[in-house]
Each structure stands twice: as C-alpha cells, then as structure tokens.
C-alpha cells in the first residue's frame, strides 16, 4: 500500500501536468481546424464552439475560387523548393571543403563565418533591398531566392556531419583516379544523405514560413507567398473568422505533415546544431 501510494501521487501529478500541457499546446491548433470547417458566423458564438455543428468546406472552396489561394500555394512551394535545392547544393560543397580539405586560412575563415551568426539578418535587409533593386530583382521570385542560396548554418551542419566520416574512403577513391567533383557528387553526397535530408527540411520549412523578406521584396500580389497573402487577407477579411482559419490551415498543414513524416531527421538536426555550444 505504502509503496503504491508513493509512486501513485508523483505519477498522478506528472500525468496531470503532461496532459494540461498537451491541452494548452494543441487547443489553438484544434480550434483552427474546427473553426475552418464551421458554417459562417459559428466561430463567433458565445460560448465558443470546439466542434462544427455541420462540417462545411465552403471556406476552402471560397479561398480557391475567389481569392486565388492556389496561386499563393504554388508560389510558396516553388520558392521554398528552389531555395532548398539550390542551397543544399551550394552549402554541401562548402561544408565538404571545410571538413575534408586542408588549406591556408581554413580555420580562421570558418570561425569568422560562425562569428557572423550573431549579426541579425535585419541589419543586412535595407542595403540588400537596394542591391537587388540595382539587379532588377525586386518584385521577382529571384529576389526571394537569391539571399537564401547559401547559409552559414547549412555549411556548419554539413561540416559537422562530414568530420565524423573517415578520410580513408575519399583517399581510396582518389587512388582510383576519380576527379574531385566526381568524388563529391557520387561519394560524398550519398554519404551525406541523412544530414542532407535534415538540412532540406530545415531549409524548406524556413523558406515556407519566412515572412519579413518576402513581405519586403514582393509587391505584386500575384507573387505573394502564403504568409504574406494571409497577412494581407487579414486586412480585408478580418470578420470572416472561418475563412481566415481555413487559410491558416492551408498555410500550416503542408509543413506540419512534412515534419510528422520526417521528424526523425528534423530532431537529429536540432541535436547536431545544439551540440556546438
């Protein structure tokens, strides 16, 4: 009895807190989905409803037929996809060079890049805007893509991963007379697969969720990404709660599914990034 009591109460408190936390964490997401399926006006009832009286997809239909949401979805997917593909290629080459080659100035250069991580991105934004304006890239897809094509964090992640891979593999390939680019392409990249998947998820999600830079660069509404379109929609349709929730669901859902499917890689990436401290 005594022993039972001693483990019963801590377990009760533990699960009480865990379930309380679960409710706090998931309720906003649950309500977002529920409200998006409610008939117009039902999300503004007293007391608030957590479940639609009848399930309707009219707000989703309205978003696609009247408000061009397909266009924004496509823009977001296109931009996030392009940034991911290009930056993966460029960052992996640089990470490989830092991990597996010896050359003068390598370590100070790498340290310098890492040190630059304390500079907030916003500091660069004003001149970057002027620079891209000179190149004629403002209000184009490339204006969003170009600044994301290389990232210090991406280089760091690849380098950390490659440091753990023995040089002997690469040396063997060199002995066989393989060219450097061939070694990178058909040996290093396949070896890096797990970390490339991780970095791809990070980059894709980062680009998909990014708000400030697309907001600055894209002025033509036909180029808007989902977050920019959503913030813009809020101005006109703040009263249409159910429709705004449908828009939020469509913005959040793709990245959330991506995470749920690939979370093993995502979590591994946070660990690798967090261990440098």
């Amino acid at each position: 009895m005594n022993r039972f009591m001693r483990s019963f109460f801590p377990a009760l408190a533990l699960y009480g807190l865990l379930i309380f936390g679960l409710l706090l964490t998931l309720t906003p997401l649950w309500w977002m989905i529920a409200a998006s399926l409610m008939p117009s006006g039902e999300a503004n009832s007293v007391p608030p409803r957590l479940w639609p009286s009848t399930v309707t997809f009219e707000h989703y239909t309205a978003l696609f037929t009247r408000l061009d949401l397909a266009r924004y979805l496509l823009n977001s997917a296109l931009l996030a996809g392009a940034v991911t593909a290009i930056s993966l290629f460029i960052n992996s080459m640089a990470g490989y060079a830092f991990a597996k080659f010896r050359f003068q100035g390598r370590d100070p250069l790498f340290q310098g890049l890492l040190g630059a991580l304390v500079i907030p991105a916003q500091v660069a934004m004003l001149p970057l805007f002027l620079l891209l304006k000179q190149f004629g890239l403002i209000n184009t897809y490339w204006g969003v893509i170009v600044p994301g094509m290389a990232s210090i964090f991406g280089i760091f992640l690849i380098r950390q991963y490659l440091l753990a891979i023995p040089d002997s593999l690469l040396d063997a390939a060199r002995m066989d007379g393989a060219g450097e680019f061939r070694i990178y392409w058909s040996l290093v990249l396949p070896l890096c697969r797990p970390i490339l998947v991780t970095l791809a998820i990070f980059t894709f999600m980062g680009a998909w969720n990014d708000f400030m830079w697309p907001l600055i660069v894209l002025t033509d509404s036909s180029l808007y990404t989902l977050p920019v379109a959503l913030a813009n929609l809020l101005g006109e349709h703040v009263q249409d709660t159910e429709m705004m929730m449908a828009g939020s669901v469509l913005t959040v859902l793709p990245v959330m599914l991506l995470f749920v499917v690939l979370q093993k890689y995502y979590i591994a990436g946070i660990m690798l990034g967090g261990m440098k401290g």
């Binding site: 679960l22 964490t25 977002m32 999300a43 709660t241 705004m244 959040v252």
Partner: peptide
C-alpha cells in the same frame, strides 16, 4: 512530438489564429 508541433507551424498563420483566440 505534440509539444513540438507549434514550432513547425507558420508564425503568421498562428498569429492570425491567436488574434481570434
């Protein structure tokens, strides 16, 4: 996984949700 879900959401979208909450 459940506690982590809000991290992967789009900030703008959940800010809109919280406005209504």
């Amino acid at each position: 996984t459940a506690f982590f879900l809000p991290v992967v959401t789009t900030l703008v979208a959940v800010a809109v949700v919280w406005r209504y909450l």
